[in-house]
Amino acid sequence: MTETHEIGMVYLAASDLELADAADDVRGLPVVTQLGHRLGEVEDLIIDPVERRARLLSVVSGGILGLGVTERLVPVEAITRVDDRVHVDRPEPAGDGDGRHRGDPADLAEEGYQPELVDRPPFAEVYERYGVMPFWTAGYVVPYFLRR
């Protein structure tokens, strides 16, 4: 099981786990901001293996023929609704630090390719960039995404 270096979270596709609630599986849906700008598409979910709940979306965008693909992490706390798209109530955070570029054609073309968990900011930084409270803090309120 590919595990992150913090809090023991894992990519769903790289694990043998199933989500606690199948309705949380939004992989393949486009992600848009409150202004309707497309951020990308949900490629995978980063889950905590204890509760088997999605905690972050792995949203990919850009690239031509597999080159220059950008991955951005989006906390589920930033999601306001899910229909045929995932709606994020906060504008895209500034800066590049919440994702990484990957574009090695050999890696991307390889069947079953799963992103490695390297060159990532601490998860607390991702939550801070979106201005939301991380799930591991005292006083955490379960967000819309996990209550729907």
Rank of each mutant, 00 (worst) to 15 (best):
Y127W: 15
E125T: 12
D21E: 15
R85I: 10
P75T: 04
E92G: 01
L39I: 10
D119F: 09
D21Y: 07
W136L: 10
A54Q: 02
F123I: 02
E51P: 04
L117T: 07
G112A: 08
R100V: 06
T80I: 08
L17I: 09
V141E: 15
E51M: 12
A54N: 04
E116H: 09
G66V: 03
G28K: 07
L65H: 09
R52S: 13
T33Y: 01
R27T: 13
L39G: 02
V42Q: 02
A14R: 01
A54E: 03
E41N: 10
D24N: 12
D48V: 09
G97A: 14
R85D: 12
P91G: 11
P91D: 15
I46L: 14
L35H: 09
Y113R: 12
V132M: 03
E6H: 09
P134Q: 06
Y113P: 00
P105E: 07
R90V: 15
E6P: 01
G66T: 03
E116G: 11
V118K: 12
G40F: 02
D89M: 09
R90K: 14
L108K: 00
T80K: 07
I64D: 13
G68H: 02
A54P: 09
A13D: 12
G131P: 03
H5Y: 11
I46A: 08
V26K: 02
D89N: 14
L57F: 15
L12F: 05
G62P: 05
D84E: 13
L117F: 07
I79T: 03
Y127E: 05
E18C: 07
A20M: 09
G66W: 02
S15A: 12
R52P: 04
P93N: 08
R129H: 14
W136M: 10
H5A: 11
M9T: 10
P49F: 04
V59T: 05
A23L: 13
V86M: 06
G68P: 05
A54M: 05
L29F: 11
V86C: 09
V60D: 01
M9A: 08
R100G: 11
L17G: 04
M133P: 03
V50W: 07
Y130N: 03
L35R: 12
P75E: 09
V132G: 02
V69K: 12
P121K: 04
L17T: 03
V74T: 03
G28L: 08
A109P: 01
Y11A: 07
G112L: 13
E110S: 12
G139M: 09
P49A: 14
R38V: 12
E116P: 05
Y130T: 03
G139N: 11
E92F: 08
R100P: 00
V118E: 13
A13R: 09
P115R: 08
R81D: 13
G97Q: 14
P49I: 03
S15Y: 02
V126D: 02
D44C: 05
M133C: 11
Y130L: 04
G8Q: 10
V126W: 02
G68E: 06
H87I: 08
A138N: 08
V82M: 08
V141C: 04
R85H: 11
L57S: 01
D98R: 10
V82A: 08
V32H: 00
E125Y: 06
G103F: 00
G63R: 07
G112R: 11
F123V: 03
H37Q: 15
W136R: 06
H37K: 15
P49W: 01
V74Y: 00
